[in-house]
Simulated assay, not measured.
Amino acid sequence: MRPTLVRLVRPRRPERATAPLYPPLELYKRILRAHKILPADLRALGDMYVKAEFKAHQKIDNPLHIVGFLTQWQDYLRSIDGGDWMSGKLSKLELDKMSPEQIGQLYELMQEAKGKKEE
């Protein structure tokens, strides 16, 4: 991902207008630092997931995909920092926007999180 593309895009939502998108590496580091407030088992799971996602999206060149990726991860960072992660739920609209592959990944993540919780 090229950090220069991030500077070219203006956020569409008013709550994002005050906070520009972080460059990919900075966002990655901030997310891993924010995970320190999570319980140890959730932190390990979250760190693995973040590392895998950023690695999988490292070679993306499409500016729209890059901005969407960074925007969603920045929203995630805000929810972790704000403490909203405990009560976070996906709306019907958000689920409708997901592809079958994304829903499958979400289901696998849920199963993994439940397995860690039961142990």
Results as ranks from 00 to 15, higher is better:
37 I>S: 13
107 Y>W: 05
91 S>P: 04
23 P>T: 08
95 L>R: 14
65 H>T: 05
6 V>M: 03
12 R>S: 09
40 A>E: 05
114 K>P: 04
112 E>R: 14
69 F>E: 00
32 L>V: 02
89 K>D: 03
13 R>Q: 13
23 P>I: 03
50 V>T: 15
3 P>S: 08
90 L>E: 08
52 A>I: 02
80 I>C: 07
90 L>P: 04
69 F>L: 00
77 L>T: 05
22 Y>G: 02
90 L>A: 11
107 Y>I: 08
69 F>S: 00
101 E>W: 04
38 L>H: 09
107 Y>Q: 06
71 T>R: 14
94 E>P: 06
28 Y>P: 04
104 G>V: 01
70 L>N: 01
119 E>T: 11
28 Y>M: 06
96 D>E: 15
63 P>F: 01
119 E>K: 14
95 L>G: 06
109 L>T: 06
99 S>G: 09
89 K>Y: 05
80 I>E: 05
34 A>S: 09
86 M>H: 10
62 N>G: 01
100 P>Q: 08
116 K>E: 10
51 K>S: 15
2 R>I: 10
81 D>W: 02
119 E>S: 12
29 K>S: 08
77 L>H: 09
108 E>R: 13
72 Q>C: 01
71 T>M: 06
56 A>D: 07
9 V>W: 10
49 Y>T: 14
111 Q>I: 09
15 E>D: 15
17 A>M: 12
74 Q>S: 10
62 N>R: 05
17 A>F: 08
64 L>N: 12
26 E>K: 12
62 N>L: 02
6 V>R: 03
117 K>D: 07
99 S>Y: 05
57 H>V: 00
31 I>D: 00
29 K>V: 07
37 I>P: 03
5 L>S: 01
57 H>P: 00
69 F>Y: 02
97 K>R: 15
43 R>V: 06
66 I>L: 03
70 L>S: 02
24 P>T: 10
104 G>D: 02
84 D>M: 04
25 L>F: 12
7 R>Y: 10
45 L>M: 07
